[in-house]
Design a protein around this nucleic acid. Structure first.
Length: 570
RNA sequence: GCGCCCGUAGCUCAAUCGGAUAGAGCGUCGGACUUCGAAUCCGAAGGUCGGGGGUUCGAUUCCCUCCGGGCGCGCCA
């Protein structure tokens, strides 16, 4: 348990004892307070009725009697506020961070538990547009967060490698394709885009695509051979992108994995839930869902649909992992689909159906180029790198940074901008794509966090590293206390982020840490006695250096959890 | 039509299971570097929390309704 959690717990149990209530009833009401009010606060409104006393009277009564080591307790109107005794608190937090290093904020609450995370999951032979960043980067962060809390994580890149789109590519190759370039991902994408447009206007062409997929499902050797080539070319095309983002999946598989299990799962659904034919298609009606449409298991031509494959996949994942949670990091557009799939599983009698969860996220609008094509994720990353490179060279010329590899640094900063630019938003909010916004390096951005981290690193290297021993009693500036408070809340941010499947909680907390650090750091511009590497006083210098080290660690852990590189100078 | 999500400063977003005076960034204006790194910091201006009801000691948060936007609603994934 973190220092902050321990103090919160102590305050809550003190209150609980004084009130004669179970701690579980009190703890949820205790919350971090605004600095002006202390560190923790407890509102007494809820007790007014049962105690038949006015809230301010309850609060002052509690404050008068309550004694908790490490806390100074005061009533402020209807609230009971607690302030951490700064000496012990600062020392404990700095010791905690220093002791934990890269494990800061980690935990064991997930020990023995498994979480399956389906994320990224691009479609083979389709372009990876910028909007793919959402599932990819969200899923990656969720995997990291859960791993940090002790869960076994099974990340699955569940490729859309089966379905009509291969028919489109295959049919498209006859018209627009160059067979010699069939292993070239970019060419595949080009063919797919053209074929897709053609199919919408030309029913005969669309039927050719359908027929090709039917042949695949019937096991036609020629069709499957071509499919396999497309699949491998796409997979190879994806690799550089994942390498760039630092993502490694535990499993890369796809819908095609379940081709052999379709009849089996359909038979089981027929037996447990019931199926019927409708306009030649095979559908399953869901009980208690009169307003929802039925799910299609098979098209009228006998080929299967992705719902059928998702049902088989869910079962397969249960058999393989016996998960405590199975997450699907997929756009909110598909919430009806997942609601239906999960409900079918439930009605089929799968006791683990309730462990499946659709982790939704909003849309990115306004992403088309003038030609009407989507902006590719790779292009955005390239653009960010190019812009970062200008800035790096500029700073290098000004003598601000010393690195032998400007290219790598530019790539790291560009990634920081793009990845953080997505993760800082709450996942369910829609946002509009804006080049200026994605390529911004100032303000609430990834580079801002990276910069703060690099500055902390720079202090440490100038100051001779983290001191062996430091007396935190030398930290007397209000900005220092505020900074330590921010560091202390980091473990809590990690937990709330994991619990809500919301990495943006970590993102915004890191912004607070970096802001508190920058504020503290900047004091030294005006007043040399407030510099971290203060010359006159070795004791203060060591304490400040230890604080800078704790900042460095916290930012490093937080950025890593979000999948953002942490250069040591920039 | 039915369902889900959303509406907070000029713009983009926060506000932790309902809590104290709704906060940041960008942009605008004004300040701080012969640098412990200015990708930074400080200050100012900027708000009917979409409108209206309701529940509550207390509502940006919960409920209802209206307005406005996004998405979904059987043979794509």
């Amino acid at each position: 348990m973190s220092v902050h959690d321990q103090l919160t717990q102590a305050f809550a149990s003190g209150l609980a004892t004084a009130l004669g209530l179970p701690v579980e009833d009190v703890l949820p009401l205790v919350k971090p307070a605004e600095p002006a009010h202390g560190d923790l606060s407890f509102p007494t409104f809820g007790l007014a009725k049962t105690l038949r006393k006015a809230p301010p009277a309850i609060a002052s009564g509690l404050a008068a009697t309550l004694q908790v080591p490490g806390l100074s307790i005061q009533a402020a109107g209807p609230y009971v506020n607690a302030r951490f005794s700064s000496g012990p608190f600062l020392a404990a937090v700095l010791a905690e961070v220093r002791g934990a290093q890269q494990r800061y904020g980690s935990g064991v609450e997930g020990a023995g538990k498994t979480v399956v995370i389906d994320y990224s999951s691009p479609n083979i032979a389709k372009p990876i547009g910028f909007h793919h960043i959402r599932t990819t980067v969200l899923g990656h962060a969720l995997a990291n967060l859960h791993r940090h809390l002790g869960y076994r994580v099974e990340g699955i890149n569940y490729l859309g490698d089966w379905g009509k789109q291969f028919g489109l590519v295959a049919a498209g190759f006859e018209v627009f394709g160059d067979v010699a370039r069939r292993h070239d991902m970019a060419h595949l994408v080009d063919v797919y885009v053209k074929a897709n447009a053609r199919a919408e206007a030309d029913p005969a062409f669309d039927e050719k695509a359908r027929a090709f997929f039917r042949r695949m499902e019937q096991g036609d050797a020629d069709a499957l051979k071509l499919w396999k080539e497309f699949r491998e070319a796409s997979l190879a095309g994806f690799e550089p992108l994942y390498a760039r983002l630092g993502i490694r999946f535990e499993h890369i598989e796809g819908e095609s994995r379940y081709e052999g299990r379709m009849e089996q799962i359909i038979a089981e659904i027929a037996r447990t839930v019931g199926v019927r034919e409708s306009d030649g298609a095979l559908v399953v009606d869901l009980p208690y869902a009169e307003n929802d449409p039925p799910i299609l298991l098979k098209k009228s031509d006998g080929s299967t649909l992705y719902a059928t494959r998702d049902l088989a996949a869910a079962e397969d994942r249960w058999e393989r992992f016996h998960f405590d949670r199975s997450l699907y990091v997929v756009a909110r557009d598909q919430s009806l689909h997942f609601a239906q799939v999960f409900r079918v599983l439930k009605v089929m009698g799968k006791p683990w159906a309730d462990r499946c969860l659709h982790v939704t996220f909003g849309r990115i609008a306004g992403m088309s180029t003038r030609k009407g094509e989507v902006v590719l994720l790779t292009d955005v990353l390239d653009e960010a790198r190019a812009l970062a490179l200008d800035k790096v060279r500029e700073n290098q010329a000004a003598g601000r940074i010393h690195t032998d590899n400007v290219e790598t640094l530019a790539e790291q900063v560009g990634l920081g901008a793009v990845v953080f630019g997505d993760l800082k938003n709450r996942r369910n909010s829609d946002y509009t794509f804006d080049w200026d916004e994605v390529l911004s390096f100032e303000g609430h951005t990834g580079p801002y966090l990276q910069y703060a981290h690099a500055r902390a690193c720079s202090l440490l290297s100038r100051g001779g590293g983290a001191p062996e021993a430091a007396d935190s009693a030398a930290l007397t500036l209000p900005e220092e206390e505020a900074l330590v408070r921010a560091l202390a809340l980091f473990p809590r941010a990690v937990r709330t982020a994991a619990d809500a499947y919301e990495p943006s909680f970590v993102a915004s907390h890191l912004l607070e840490v970096a802001a508190a650090f920058s504020r503290w750091y900047t004091l030294g511009n005006q007043d040399r006695s407030k510099r971290v590497l203060v010359e006159e006083d070795a004791r203060t210098r060591a304490a400040r250096l230890a604080l800078a080290d704790a900042v460095r660690i916290t930012l490093s852990v937080g950025l890593s959890l979000l999948g953002i590189p942490t250069p040591e100078n920039m």
